[in-house]
Amino acid sequence: MDRVTKSYFENLESNDKNVQYEAYKNILAATEEKVAWSYEVWDELKEGLTHPDHHKRSRSAQFLSNLAISDPEKRMLKDFPSLWEVTKDQKFVTARHSIQSVWRVGLAGYEQKELVFTHLVDRFKNCVEEKNYTLIRYDILQGLRNLYDEGKDEDIKQNALALIETEEESKYQKKYLSLWRN
């Protein structure tokens, strides 16, 4: 790992929230592309998924989701359940940030895409008892849209549209459909 990237990870521990946020943004930007250093931080990030600090849980989930494309050993297939748990975090903002980024795991390959897709569809169908389930459903559909946009997989689109049809309240159905216009 280069010195600059290493400093970003160190700056996540800064007492200055602005320094932390800059480091966070820089790591997210760096991990949008394949990186060679994914395994230098992988285990630490995996541990961070259960850290007492919800900021660390959220960042760990987002970074691991992004690093899935830099995972030639396919560790994510084994580690995904730990990542998925953060999408159900007791702190809703942490859960939401995690669910908004988990779709990126699907960019790593066919197996990863199927894993993410299956979990997102299942969650959509079964989250109605959760607090803020309409936001969760929106984030799931946005993730499916993002996956679709990356690979133009018609199965993803058709399944997402079928999920939207199951929504009984028309105002939410319209909101969800807005993600799939154009």
Rank of each mutant, 00 (worst) to 15 (best):
M1S: 11
M1I: 07
V4Q: 15
K6M: 11
K6F: 14
Y8D: 00
F9N: 01
K17W: 15
Q20E: 11
Y21W: 15
Y21C: 10
Y21K: 13
Y24H: 10
N26M: 08
N26T: 07
I27V: 08
A29L: 11
T31E: 06
E32L: 11
V35F: 04
V35T: 10
W37F: 15
S38Y: 02
Y39W: 07
E40T: 13
W42E: 03
L45T: 00
E47A: 15
G48R: 01
L49F: 06
T50D: 13
T50F: 06
P52W: 03
D53F: 02
H54K: 12
H55A: 12
R57D: 09
S58N: 08
S60R: 04
A61E: 08
A68T: 03
I69Q: 04
D71Y: 01
D71H: 04
L77T: 03
L77D: 01
D79P: 11
D79E: 08
F80A: 04
P81H: 05
S82F: 11
L83K: 01
W84P: 03
T87R: 02
Q90N: 13
F92N: 11
T94P: 09
I99G: 03
I99Y: 02
Q100P: 05
S101M: 13
W103D: 03
G106Y: 01
A108W: 02
G109L: 02
G109M: 03
G109K: 01
G109E: 03
Y110P: 04
Y110R: 13
E111M: 10
E114M: 10
L115N: 04
L115K: 02
T118W: 00
H119D: 15
D122F: 05
K125W: 07
K125H: 10
E129C: 06
E130Q: 12
K131V: 12
Y133E: 09
T134I: 06
I136C: 05
L141H: 00
L141E: 00
Q142Y: 07
G143L: 02
G143R: 01
L144G: 00
L144I: 00
R145I: 00
N146M: 02
L147H: 01
L147K: 00
Y148M: 04
E150V: 06
D153C: 05
D153I: 05
E154R: 05
E154W: 01
N159F: 00
L161V: 05
L161R: 05
L163H: 06
L163Y: 07
E168M: 12
Y172S: 10
K174S: 12
Y176T: 01
Y176L: 02
L177G: 11
R181V: 14
N182S: 14
N182A: 11
